[in-house]
């Protein structure tokens, strides 16, 4: 299938160093975590970066991936002003009764 992918024809298409196969967006997606964690071998890291220079979709995907992690973290940061609902009285009583039962 011919794919109209916005790679710059002036640049060499990044390829898998072992198989010689063209590195695809799917590969980028599969290895994005290893790329961000710096766990890819140096050569694969460079090929990954080369794909990103040529593919704006994957750049956008990478940014979205990083933003997702940040949003997840920030969504659970403590807001000291936020009022949490109290523990229901019957549950407080059940917890204290369970403690007594275990004594």
């Amino acid at each position: 299938m011919t794919h109209d992918h916005p790679h710059d024809p002036q640049h060499e298409v990044p390829r898998d160093p072992v198989s010689g196969r063209e590195l695809t967006c799917r590969d980028i997606c599969d290895f994005v975590m290893a790329y961000l964690d710096g766990e890819l071998p140096e050569r694969e890291q460079a090929i990954f970066a080369a794909h990103l220079r040529l593919c704006r979709q994957c750049v956008s995907y990478l940014e979205g991936y990083k933003t997702t992690i940040q949003l997840a973290r920030q969504s659970h940061e403590t807001n000291p002003c936020a009022a949490l609902p109290p523990v229901p009285d019957d549950l407080v009583k059940a917890i204290l009764a369970a403690r007594k039962a275990r004594e």
Binding site: M1, H3, H5, T24, C25, R26, D27, C29, C55, R56, Q57, C58, S60, Y61, E63, G64, T67
Partner: peptide, 17 residues
């Protein structure tokens, strides 16, 4: 999970947050 064309490339850009 992300979807791809048969050749492994994307058909749409990712989200702009």
């Amino acid at each position: 999970l992300p979807k791809f064309l048969e050749d492994g490339h994307r058909d749409l850009a990712g989200p702009a947050w």
